[in-house]
Amino acid sequence: MPFPHSLLSAARARRRRAVGRLVHRGWRWVQERGAVSPESPGPYRFGSLGDGTRLAFPLGTVFNERWIHLGPFCIVGEQVTLSAGFLPGLDLGPEPIVRIGGGCVIGRESHIVGHQSIVLGDDVWTGPGVYITDQGHEYRDPGLPIGKQWPRNEPVEIGSGSWIGTGAVILPGARLGRNVVVAAGAVVRGEVPDHSVVAGAPAKVVRRWTPEAGWEPPIRTAAPRPVPDGVTAEQLRALVGWDLHLPGPVDGGPGAGAADPSAAS
């Protein structure tokens, strides 16, 4: 008697589901074992790797990590490039080239490419696909291919508490102040003052907070819903694992805890 077609189809479907579960379980195991942390650095020898910091697997291009310093409690997403210098194996001197402060979050498939000095303060967060570099190509010699002309380095600094939106580009020489919002897709160069929102290519200041005037132009979106009564900061920290600060005025600081979503997303 031939095997019923319906039973055969059901058996094949069960097998596909089982194989799928196995593949996903195996990949989660690989991601867990491949992640880089102070306890499990793998083949990498960073200049410093702070407590609680974790680089997700698979990593992007990482080389000359001896000149890359990461502070504590950073989260680095998958396929993030962290590099210092032109090529692996260089001696880049006594000082770090890339310095990332504590509590930073680097979105997946971002690139931080340092040659002279890139400094991220504490609690700098980026969306995915952000590009930060301190080197640009020269093109002034019309008779020489641009890729063969000697590049120009200018240090980059991003102030603590800043947010860099998806796909933004931070160019050589950029100096961003504290708590700056960079809109998605913006191309940033030059000085950006504290508590500013910048957007466009090239990026321009579209909103700024000052103690005298507050936010100009005013933020017209509704404030985030408050945390329910009775939830303590300690409970939030235990739940999320970060040093959270509730929205609202704190010691005379900006009144709005959240950035304008229309500018940052």
Rank of each mutant, 00 (worst) to 15 (best):
S262Q: 07
G127K: 05
A84F: 01
T166F: 06
W67V: 12
E212T: 15
G71D: 01
R45S: 14
G114D: 01
P247M: 08
V105N: 05
E234C: 04
F63N: 08
K204D: 05
F63K: 07
D141M: 09
C74T: 12
A56C: 11
P4V: 11
G253A: 11
F46A: 13
P96I: 08
W29N: 00
L8M: 08
F86R: 14
P142E: 06
P4T: 12
G190Q: 04
T126C: 02
P218T: 02
P202K: 14
G185D: 07
G107M: 00
I164T: 09
K148H: 10
A183D: 03
L171H: 10
R17M: 13
A84W: 03
E154F: 05
R28H: 11
I112R: 01
P38N: 11
R140L: 11
G252F: 08
G71W: 01
V98F: 02
V250F: 12
A213N: 12
E191N: 12
E157I: 14
P43N: 07
R16A: 13
V62F: 00
V227D: 04
C104D: 00
L59T: 13
S162M: 04
E157A: 14
G42M: 04
W163F: 07
G214Y: 04
L82D: 03
V250S: 08
C74V: 12
D122N: 04
V105E: 03
P128A: 10
L8H: 10
T166V: 13
P88R: 09
A56G: 00
I118N: 01
Y131N: 12
W150Y: 10
G185L: 02
I112H: 01
A201W: 04
V113G: 06
G159H: 01
G248D: 06
R237P: 00
G103S: 03
L92I: 11
T221K: 03
Q116V: 10
E154C: 07
G85C: 10
L59Y: 05
A186K: 11
E65Q: 13
G60F: 01
H24D: 15
R207S: 12
I75K: 08
P254L: 06
A13G: 13
Y44G: 10
P2Q: 07
L176G: 07
A203H: 06
Y131M: 09
V36F: 07
P202T: 15
I164F: 04
F73A: 13
G147I: 15
E65S: 15
S37C: 14
P155D: 00
G167Y: 01
G101I: 04
G47V: 12
G136R: 07
P172Y: 01
R208T: 12
F46R: 14
P96V: 10
G20T: 15
L120I: 07
L239N: 08
P202Q: 14
E157R: 15
H195K: 13
E39V: 10
V231A: 00
S117T: 10
L7K: 13
S117K: 06
D260M: 06
I97K: 09
A10M: 09
S40L: 09
E95K: 08
L59E: 05
A186F: 10
A174R: 04
G47W: 05
A223H: 03
I97D: 03
P38Q: 11
